[in-house]
């Protein structure tokens, strides 16, 4: 029982991170119908910007943890969203009128490029940071097992919940959100009505990248290490989360992220830690086989 609760906490933490990244996949799919395979690497870039920022702040002797976290978040979001913007502008927009496969291949190219760029500029070795939040709360003890809630986990869950709430508000209540949803439903009509669809698509990429950057910062704080290859596996898991929730569905991405995080935690604890990645990929295959529209997705064909 105690271990199950601990896994629940761990799983929710992990799931929050997957959910943040999954939103980027699902938004981009919703608006231009492509899977942005470079999105996992955008998250990796966000994590590296976090490491660099933390190191710089430490070098300047900044010791206030809340200030450091906030500063790193702002810097990571700002720079990473520019990456998101640039990836769309360079690799996808010129191919928008061509067949569906072209931007997909371009995305894989972008992914490889980003990984190699970071490897060349930052080195191939694992980069650690000095631990930032080390405390935690002992919730209760059962036998020899103490259920512990770490400060980093509280940070991740609270930040994610706040971001999701803000993001939901943005999409459902604001003028930009309405334009974004309009583009998902009919781009030509949205243009004809006087909206700059290219700009809306750019901002969508920037928002997706910004959320991935937050995930990158959180993971950096949580694990304390990053390397240039973390974007690949995490990217595919977040993609699985988006597909599981129903690609194109924002609540679906959040739900899918949580489920993947929980399944992974419990699988690692009770079945096999070495094969924990198998769990997510098995889910991906099963969803694609039996319920391609996902949990909250809608069928492609709809009555209009």
């Amino acid at each position: 029982m105690a271990q199950a609760i601990q896994q629940l906490i761990n799983g929710l933490t992990l799931g929050a991170v997957y959910g943040l990244i999954a939103i980027g996949y699902t938004m981009v799919y919703g608006i231009i119908g492509m899977i942005n395979f470079a999105h996992g690497d955008i998250y990796m870039v966000g994590a590296f910007i976090a490491v660099t920022s933390f190191t710089l702040l430490a070098a300047f002797g900044v010791s206030s943890v809340p200030f450091a976290l906030l500063a790193v978040l702002v810097v990571a979001i700002a720079f990473t969203s520019v990456y998101g913007w640039a990836v769309e502008r360079i690799a996808y927009r010129p191919l928008r009128a061509s067949n569906r496969l072209a931007p997909l291949i371009s995305a894989i190219g972008m992914s490889i490029f980003l990984e190699n760029m970071v490897q060349v500029t930052q080195g191939a070795r694992i980069k650690p940071i000095r631990p930032i939040l080390t405390g935690g709360i002992n919730l209760f003890t059962q036998g020899t097992f103490t259920v512990r809630l770490f400060e980093t986990q509280i940070l991740i869950i609270v930040t994610t919940v706040a971001l999701m709430a803000g993001f939901t508000w943005l999409i459902t209540r604001t003028s930009f959100g309405r334009q974004q949803r309009a583009c998902e439903q009919d781009q030509v009509v949205t243009k004809v009505l006087g909206y700059n669809v290219d700009r809306i698509i750019s901002v969508t990429f920037m928002i997706g990248a910004g959320l991935a950057a937050v995930a990158g910062v959180m993971v950096t704080v949580y694990y304390g290490v990053v390397d240039f290859f973390i974007g690949f596996v995490v990217g595919i898991k977040a993609f699985t989360a988006a597909v599981l929730g129903g690609i194109g569905s924002l609540p679906g991405a959040m739900l899918g992220g949580l489920i993947i995080g929980l399944v992974e935690s419990f699988w690692a604890a009770y079945l096999s830690a070495e094969y924990k990645d198998v769990a997510s990929f098995a889910i991906l295959i099963l969803v694609l086989m039996f319920r391609p529209t996902g949990l909250l997705g809608r069928p492609e064909v709809e009555k209009v």
């Binding site: 003028s175 309405r178 309009a182 009919d186 030509v188 209009v304």
Partner: peptide, 18 residues
């Protein structure tokens, strides 16, 4: 070509770009 998954009000709001 109205936006089927938006409300009637949101559709009308979309008519007011400028």
């Amino acid at each position: 070509r109205i936006y089927p998954r938006m409300t009637v009000l949101e559709n009308l709001q979309m008519g007011t770009a400028k």
